[in-house]
Design a protein around this nucleic acid. Structure first.
Lengths: 338, 338
DNA sequence: CGAGTCAAGTTTTACGTATAACGTCTCCCG
DNA sequence: CGGGAGACGTTATACGTAAAACTTGACTCG
């Protein structure tokens, strides 16, 4: 396994600089004020540079007992949303001398089997998003400090949670459509067992299902454009009065709904309105541009990392959901006269 | 930093099972055939289970001198392409007892400053994609085995390279459009310094620029829908004969081109044909569906990991570019009569 | 029966680092 | 002039694991 010569150690640097290994550690660890002379320190730094010394992280981690590395468990990275979450988390982490390692759950959104077998870095904590309960308990078994993203605050076994205010987003969507005059509404839901999707269904049922004179039909589809198209096409072809609006659990599903609508020879928003949730790049790529709920993925990641840092330091994580905002674009309009 | 009680070590397990620490290491490391009795082994395993023992990876890595962990450096994860690359790489890695850690270069496509400061896991090797030369040399300075993805085989400082056969893909696109009868072609290029984009320009110049009776105009845009839209709109509004086809460096740029075309009141493919490159989900979300070149991201990742494993074992990596294929959809058609 | 073999462990060591604990030497002040 | 106080280091140790080297006892076989 040895590729060429072995990497230089702090002892090599010490020998080259004519000092002890301890001195090297002090200088390079920036703990030398008043313990090593400036000239000696410079000699050590020069020797390190010369040899291309890089500390052995395994040894350091072992000695220190922590790694200042955190694992971010996300569903498969098939949209840029979790890229944003990562970016935000990594920014806060870097400001605090931490690193972030990504573990994209291979089987897509849903339960991850064993993040730790795969991401074999030694970890100080975990930020996990949208995971099923079995994987969650697997993680908890590890006793690692844990922050959950977009999960049921009650059911998270006492882990800290950071949530987007999805409930409010859904409320805004419902209000928008009701104000426009829609009464027959189709909910195109993600066929994924996750709290973040349950919340959408729950809020929609409360906001629309209980308003007199409205009807709410829910159908489920896998989160893919083709899956959503198929499901939506079936639902729209059913006999009986056609819905005048489709609320989709996310933007990708909305893209599928667009295709279904077009296939049936209908027009958005004239014949039917469509809404999404996420505000991905996709939302403005399709025509007409999609009315959707903007989620601040980076802020989400930042808040997640801040919460984890709080847990690590024994502080109480900041409470409060992250606000979201409806972005009205061209895919919604009042329903045409019946 | 201590959260509750400290984690159990192999010594704790040994004590609980009434054996030495070495015996625990042998049993759990599966090296005990003929060294420890079956009954003792079972006792050890039971004790480990009871205590919830998890080996300290930092200590193991230090002892072993390697981590069986590899870093995958990718541009910011704003499309699902690199998710596929990761998936493929992780699959091969897992089959060989390796883990993969992701480092998404924070500043987007382009040079990454210091992957190692951030991804502070101890590493055995690196797979790096589309990086500028300065970051490359920084990595090389670390003496880590390196595999480059989609990079100039000549300029990679002797690192192994794995490439998609982009040249062939571009050739197929050019041939497709020329066969349809297009003669005035606009090349919407990515404004990013990377070999993978240089190759596109080079091949296009050779295949179209040198055919008598054709014209090829190249404009550059940042890889974003809005950036592409702006650039394309400007180019299409210029005086003189309008191009009849736009070849885009990737699908995202193509989505921008769609918007530009629509803004100018033109139709795809009737007035103008558009092609992409990647075959992302986006390609079938837009209307009409995009003619593009399908890249097998997972195979790309697999081949990258296989090459790195070869390097680690002192073998010669498999040679040969990964084939790509043109997928003809509704965005290309013969040019309308002038 | 004595040497060799084998099973079933144990003792010991090394990996590279960070840091606590321990010298020196010089200077300065009462 | 005696000793306390820096300045400038060094020595020694521990982190948890894997594995080489060693021990012990029982059994085999010529």
């Amino acid at each position: 396994m040895a590729h060429g010569s072995t990497r230089p150690t702090s002892r090599d640097v010490a020998h080259a600089a004519g000092v002890s290994q301890a001195a090297v550690s002090l200088v390079l660890g920036d703990k030398w004020r008043g313990r090593v002379s400036e000239t000696t320190a410079e000699r050590v730094r020069e020797a390190a540079r010369q040899l291309g010394y890089r500390p052995n992280l395994a040894a350091r981690n072992l000695r220190l007992g922590h790694t200042r590395t955190v694992l971010l468990v996300v569903p498969a990275l098939t949209t840029e949303f979790f890229a944003g979450v990562y970016t935000g988390a990594a920014r806060i982490a870097a400001q605090n001398g931490f690193g972030v390692v990504l573990y994209p759950s291979p089987e897509g959104i849903g339960p991850a089997r064993d993040p730790f077998a795969s991401a074999q870095a030694a970890l100080d904590g975990v930020i996990a998003s949208s995971m099923a309960a079995d994987a969650l308990t697997a993680i908890r078994g590890d006793q690692l400090p844990l922050v959950m993203l977009d999960s049921d605050p009650q059911g998270s076994l006492g882990a800290a949670t950071v949530n987007l205010d999805i409930t409010d987003g859904v409320r805004q969507v419902a209000e928008h459509l009701l104000t426009l005059g829609h009464r027959r509404i189709l909910h195109l839901a993600a066929d994924v067992p996750s709290w973040t999707f349950d919340v959408r269904a729950r809020e929609l049922a409360a906001r629309i299902g209980e308003v007199p004179g409205t009807s709410l039909l829910t159908i489920r589809a896998p989160i893919s454009i083709e899956g959503a198209r198929t499901a939506a096409e079936t639902a729209l072809s059913a006999k009986g009065p056609r819905p005048t609006a489709i609320i989709c659990d996310d933007d990708k599903l909305a893209a599928g709904a667009y295709k279904a609508v077009r296939r049936l020879g209908l027009r958005i928003p004239d014949d039917i309105s469509v809404t999404g949730l996420d505000d991905l790049a996709l939302a403005t790529a399709i025509d007409p541009e999609l009315t959707t709920v903007r989620l601040d993925a980076e802020l989400f990641g930042e808040r997640g990392m801040q919460a984890l840092l709080a847990v690590l330091e024994g502080r109480e994580p900041e409470a409060g959901d992250i606000p979201v905002q409806l972005v009205v674009r061209g895919s919604t309009a009042p329903p045409s006269a019946p």
